[in-house]
């Protein structure tokens, strides 16, 4: 690990005044990084994949670990631990997709430590990004992407570029995307609120820039508006082993179903297949006005792979995504015990 200076932020102003950086290239990192749960950051630092000169520990900041359900909005402080949000009774009841996405992430030990804000910013698990001995455009711009001609079973098929096909590894963000959640961002300029859909960026020609966060910006809270759909929501994750594993494909689904059994509103996002959290509007459109049956779900999910681009070993993901989305829609239709 590269030596670094450690500071503990006492106030939010102090934290955002640090100018902490949000990029994934090593060469640029002579600045400051935020440290929260550290479950990803410490791995990156130990492998030399991140070499901050300064660490600004934000875990001591007061007032950022709240879970409020305030009328029409679920508010989650950025420092809430994954395990606490997942276990919260009202989250479990009213925002099932969030609770499930969190519980299907990582391991119990990691969830006890990792924070929600940090979870949104976890880095890809692409094996080449994680290997300090391999080239990687995300880590060392211009060095090349060995995943494109190489071992890419776990790499993305949506949102890829000729520079990078690294998968966004998270689950929580996919659930939030399906719920039209917003992210509250603090900086020394004040505060701004953006749709979660705008937080992450596809790699395009600058794969080392993964979010739209500017230097010093700090995710302070996450807000998910309540709707009929949040009450009927579900997260399905397909993975190699049954726990402590990233997704081969996952789907976050929220459905608003009218009394006559037809879908009034559908929100669907997928994980494990794209370079950032990925919404499937075309699938949503196909569901509206229809009753959820296995056949309807399958038919709607057929368009899930539109625009996908495979690079050999990851070609299966297009079909697996369709099947995962279809199954998740079907299961969501049955949430609450009644088949819609």
């Amino acid at each position: 690990m590269t030596p670094f200076a450690y500071a503990r932020a006492r106030t939010l102003a102090e934290a955002v005044g640090s100018g902490a950086e949000h990029r994934s290239d090593v060469g640029h990192s002579t600045g400051t990084d935020f440290l929260a749960g550290g479950t990803d950051m410490i791995q990156l630092m130990r492998e030399g994949l991140r070499r901050p000169a300064r660490i600004m520990d934000v875990t001591g900041l007061a007032g950022l670990d709240y879970i409020d359900i305030d009328g029409p909005v679920l508010r989650l402080g950025a420092l809430v631990r994954m395990s606490d949000a997942a276990a919260h009774p009202q989250v479990r009841e009213g925002y099932r997709v969030i609770s499930e996405a969190l519980l299907l992430s990582a391991s119990a030990q990691v969830r006890n430590l990792a924070t929600l804000g940090g979870n949104l910013l976890q880095r890809t698990r692409c094996g080449y990004f994680r290997d300090p001995g391999a080239p990687c455009n995300k880590r060392a711009p211009g060095s090349g992407c060995p995943a494109i001609p190489g071992q890419n079973r776990l790499n993305a098929v949506l949102g890829v570029s000729d520079q990078c096909i690294a998968t966004y590894a998270g689950d929580f963000a996919n659930a939030l995307l399906a719920l039209d959640a917003r992210v509250r961002i603090a900086s020394d300029q004040g505060e701004r609120v953006i749709p979660l859909a705008d937080l992450h960026r596809a790699p395009d020609q600058t794969p080392w820039i993964e979010t739209q966060l500017a230097h010093g910006e700090f995710i302070s809270a996450i807000e998910a508006p309540t709707s009929f759909a949040t009450w009927r929501s579900h997260y399905l994750k397909v993975r190699d082993r049954r726990s402590f594993e990233w997704a081969l494909a996952s789907a976050a689904v929220a459905l608003d179903i009218a009394p006559d059994g037809t879908v009034r509103d559908a929100r669907i996002a997928v994980g494990g297949v794209a370079t950032r959290p990925w919404r499937l509007s075309a699938v949503e459109d196909r569901l509206r006005g229809r009753r959820v049956t296995a056949d309807v779900a399958r038919e709607a999910a057929q368009v899930a792979g539109d625009g996908a681009m495979a690079h050999g070993r990851n070609a299966y993901k297009i079909e697996l995504m369709r099947r995962t989305v279809a199954r998740a829609i079907e299961e969501t239709g049955m949430v609450g015990g009644t088949a819609a």
Partner: peptide, 9 residues
Amino acid sequence: DEHLGRVSN
């Protein structure tokens, strides 16, 4: 990885 000659996982 048969191009790099490295284990990629």
